[in-house]
Amino acid sequence: MSTTPASKSCVSCGRTIEWRKKWERDWESVKYCSDACRRAKVSDVDRALEAAILELLDARSAGATICPSEAAKRVAGVDDEAGWRALMEPARRAARRLVASGDVEVTQRGRPVDPSTAKGPIRIRRRR
């Protein structure tokens, strides 16, 4: 009897990839949750958002949180409203990747949540 392999995170969006029977032969090589993520990959802007999240958290006291919009504004520039708003979903993806790497956790109402399924406003803090 075989056991189901552990789930893993998409390298592009950070969402959880659940094992599927069709991936049985090549589960080790599965990196992306969808064709859209395979095409998108991780860009320099995505890496800049990850760095901005970590820098903002480093500047705060232990246990303090940030909003993804703060990282988006730092990368796009506070005065560029259309630019930072366009970076909101990439900032959420960056937060999910950082959760997968163990650096941060995503919270809602002060409690950690699964970033793959979180809907609505989120906050990001260093992992406790």
Rank of each mutant, 00 (worst) to 15 (best):
Y32D: 04
L56A: 12
A36P: 08
G110M: 10
P68M: 06
A6N: 13
A40Y: 07
A76S: 12
P112H: 09
V99T: 14
A64D: 15
R123P: 00
L98N: 00
K21L: 15
A64K: 07
L49W: 02
A36C: 07
R125Q: 13
A100C: 03
I17M: 08
A100W: 05
T117H: 06
A71W: 07
I66G: 00
C13Q: 05
M1E: 12
V113L: 12
R111G: 04
I124T: 03
S116G: 14
S34I: 09
A91R: 00
R74Y: 07
A94F: 10
K22P: 01
S116M: 12
A52R: 01
C10M: 07
R38A: 15
V78P: 02
G102Y: 00
R15K: 14
K22I: 15
S61W: 04
P90H: 06
V99W: 08
R93A: 11
C10F: 09
D26K: 00
V75M: 03
C37A: 01
R123A: 15
R92V: 12
C13R: 02
S12T: 14
V45S: 07
A76W: 06
W19L: 04
D44A: 13
I17V: 01
A76M: 05
W84L: 06
E24Q: 11
G102M: 07
S61K: 14
S2Q: 13
G110T: 03
C67T: 15
A71N: 00
S43L: 04
S2G: 14
T107L: 14
M88T: 10
P90T: 08
G120N: 05
V78D: 13
V104I: 14
A82D: 10
R125K: 13
I17Y: 00
A48T: 03
R74G: 02
C13H: 09
T65M: 13
R25H: 13
A76Q: 04
S101H: 01
T3A: 14
D103R: 13
R111S: 11
G63P: 06
G14A: 09
V42H: 11
A100S: 02
E89N: 11
L54M: 04
P90W: 01
R127Y: 03
D114P: 00
S43G: 12
P90L: 06
R25F: 10
R97W: 00
I122R: 07
C13D: 09
M1K: 11
R96T: 01
R125W: 05
R125E: 10
D46V: 04
A95N: 10
G14W: 04
P90I: 05
W84R: 08
R20V: 11
A72M: 02
R111N: 03
M88Q: 12
A64Q: 13
R127S: 08
E55A: 15
I122C: 10
R47I: 04
S12R: 10
E24F: 06
A76N: 02
E89W: 03
A82K: 11
C37H: 06
K119M: 14
A91E: 02
E89T: 12
K22V: 13
L49V: 05
V42Q: 10
L87Q: 01
R39S: 13
P115V: 07
A76L: 04
R92W: 06
T65V: 11
V30D: 00
T117K: 03
A62M: 11
K41L: 15
S7Y: 04
W84M: 09
W27K: 06
E105S: 09
A86G: 15
G102P: 02
A94R: 08
